[in-house]
Amino acid sequence: MDKIIIADNLSLGYGKHETIISKATFAIDSGSFVFITGASGSGKSTLLKSFFGALPMLSGSLTVGGVDMDNINTKKLNFLRRHVGIVFQDYKLVKEWTIEKNVMLPLLINGYARDISEMQVEKLLGHVKLTHQRGKYPMELSGGEQQRVAMARALAHNPILILADEPTGNLDEYSSKVIWNLLEGANTQLEATVVVVTHHIPETLGVKYKHYHIEHGDVYEVS
């Protein structure tokens, strides 16, 4: 099976004197479902940021989707991000845009035709049970609804890699269930690789998964 993420002696941090991930070596299979756990401040989000080029490495090597993250330029980074869907814990929706336009954003960036974009947004808003909210703005929705919008946006352009940072950390039970169902569907139906940073792995997840844990800067697989 192909590897979509390969890390070799990867060290990450926010300066030479603040190493958070130390000499991590691991590989993530294409099409797999992966959880990354660890205590608060252990480096879970730091590691995830490196996967989409938001944090440069201190040393070692990291390849994501065949792109060398150490020698990445703007063109390569834009190419990579066109194939990645990202779900943040704090949603990161554009407050001045309607729900419909927020979901459509990655489609517009990727050059999809308007009619195809509208059809895709219609389908995704149905999946997250928010068709009736399409004309509203993010601040008019609850936190759970905003995260469901963010999830729809992450899936809009059929990414090959989905990165989710505590996607259900602050959500009610209903919204959490919607998010997990969408992530499972993206993995099993679209064959996307899903990497989720979380404190708690759901007990009822319907897919096989790998589990990596971070402790004292070490990243290791939990059997």
Rank of each mutant, 00 (worst) to 15 (best):
A186Q: 09
S22D: 15
Q89I: 08
D70M: 11
N71R: 14
P106G: 02
S142F: 11
D172E: 11
T168Y: 09
G85T: 05
E18H: 14
G60H: 12
I28T: 11
G169K: 08
D90L: 03
P56K: 11
M104C: 13
K44Q: 06
Q89N: 08
E140K: 09
G169R: 10
H132I: 08
E166K: 05
E215H: 14
I20L: 06
N181R: 11
V121E: 12
L155N: 06
G53I: 05
G206L: 00
W180G: 04
H213F: 08
Y209M: 01
L62S: 07
H199P: 02
N170G: 07
T188S: 15
A156T: 03
Q133R: 15
W97R: 14
H132A: 13
G53M: 01
S11K: 09
E18W: 02
L48C: 05
T198V: 05
W180F: 15
L141G: 04
V128Y: 03
N73T: 09
S142I: 10
T63S: 14
A156Y: 02
L182C: 14
G65D: 03
D2G: 01
V87P: 05
P106K: 01
F52A: 02
G111C: 08
I214M: 04
A24Q: 10
P138Q: 02
L12Y: 03
M69D: 05
F52Y: 15
G60N: 11
I5K: 02
G65Q: 02
L80Q: 10
S42K: 04
N110L: 00
G38H: 07
L105D: 03
M69K: 06
Y220E: 08
G41Y: 06
L105E: 11
D68H: 03
A7D: 06
L155H: 04
N170V: 09
M104S: 13
M1A: 12
N187E: 07
P167Y: 10
H127K: 14
I72M: 12
D218H: 14
Y220L: 04
G65A: 03
G143Y: 07
D2R: 10
H157I: 00
L130I: 05
W97Y: 14
L62H: 03
L93C: 09
M139N: 14
L130A: 06
I214P: 06
F79K: 10
I160P: 00
P106M: 00
M57L: 15
S40A: 12
Y112C: 10
R114T: 13
G135S: 11
Q147D: 11
L80P: 11
L12C: 02
I99T: 09
L48E: 03
I99Q: 03
N9S: 14
S40K: 07
K95P: 15
A113N: 13
Q133E: 13
M151V: 15
L183R: 03
I201D: 10
S30W: 02
V121W: 07
L10Y: 13
K92N: 13
F88W: 06
P138I: 04
H199L: 05
Q146D: 10
S32Q: 06
E18Q: 13
G66W: 08
E145G: 07
V34K: 05
T63P: 00
H213T: 15
K23N: 15
G185W: 04
D165H: 07
T98Q: 10
I20Y: 01
A186T: 11
K44P: 10
D165Y: 03
G66F: 06
G65E: 01
M119A: 13
G85W: 01
H157L: 00
